[in-house]
C-alpha cells in the first residue's frame, strides 16, 4: 500500500513536471494582458506606457501608398535597395481576444489580410 502510494505520488509529480520539460514553442501573448506591469505604473500614471489598439493593418509596399493592396503597384521598387521607412513613435498592440459579436459589428473587415487577432 505504501509502495503504491509512493508510485502514485511519483507519477503525479512526473505529470506535473514533464510538461515544461519538453515545453511549448509558440504561445501568443498580448502586452496589454501581460502581468509584467510597469513598476512606475503601479505607483503613478506618470511614465506609464501608452498603448494604442490597432484594429486594421494593411501591408504597405511603398511610402505614400496607404491602403493599396499588395501587387497593385509596379515591380521596380523591389529591384532597388530599400530606403529607411518611417515608424510611428507610439506602440500599437493587438485588441482583445475575439468573441461572438454583438448585434452591430465593431468593424467590418473586407479580407483576412486586414484583420488583427485570430483568424
Amino acid at each position: 500500500m505504501r509502495k503504491q502510494s509512493c508510485i502514485l505520488f511519483l507519477l503525479g509529480f512526473l505529470l506535473m513536471t514533464a510538461q515544461p520539460a519538453i515545453a511549448q514553442g509558440s504561445l501568443g501573448h498580448s502586452i496589454q494582458a501581460s502581468k509584467h506591469g510597469s513598476q512606475a505604473g503601479a505607483h503613478s500614471a506618470v511614465g506609464a506606457a501608452k498603448l494604442t489598439s490597432g484594429i486594421v493593418a494593411v501591408p504597405l509596399i511603398a511610402i505614400g501608398e496607404v491602403g493599396k493592396a499588395v501587387g497593385s503597384t509596379g515591380e521596380a521598387m523591389w529591384d532597388e535597395a530599400n530606403e529607411p521607412l518611417p515608424i510611428a513613435s507610439e506602440t500599437v498592440t493587438a485588441g482583445p481576444p475575439p468573441s461572438v459579436p454583438s448585434d452591430k459589428p465593431v468593424i467590418e473587415n473586407s479580407s483576412t489580410l486586414t484583420s488583427t487577432g485570430r483568424e
Binding site: 494604442t52 490597432g54 494593411v58 501591408p59 521607412l85 507610439e90 500599437v92
Partner: peptide, 24 residues
Amino acid sequence: YSNIQTADGRNIRGYQIYNLYQRS
C-alpha cells in the same frame, strides 16, 4: 510593414506580425 488604423481612427506606420501560435 503596414499602415495601421488605430482604434481612434488614425493611420500610423509600423509592423504587423503574422504568427503561427499554439492555442494556450
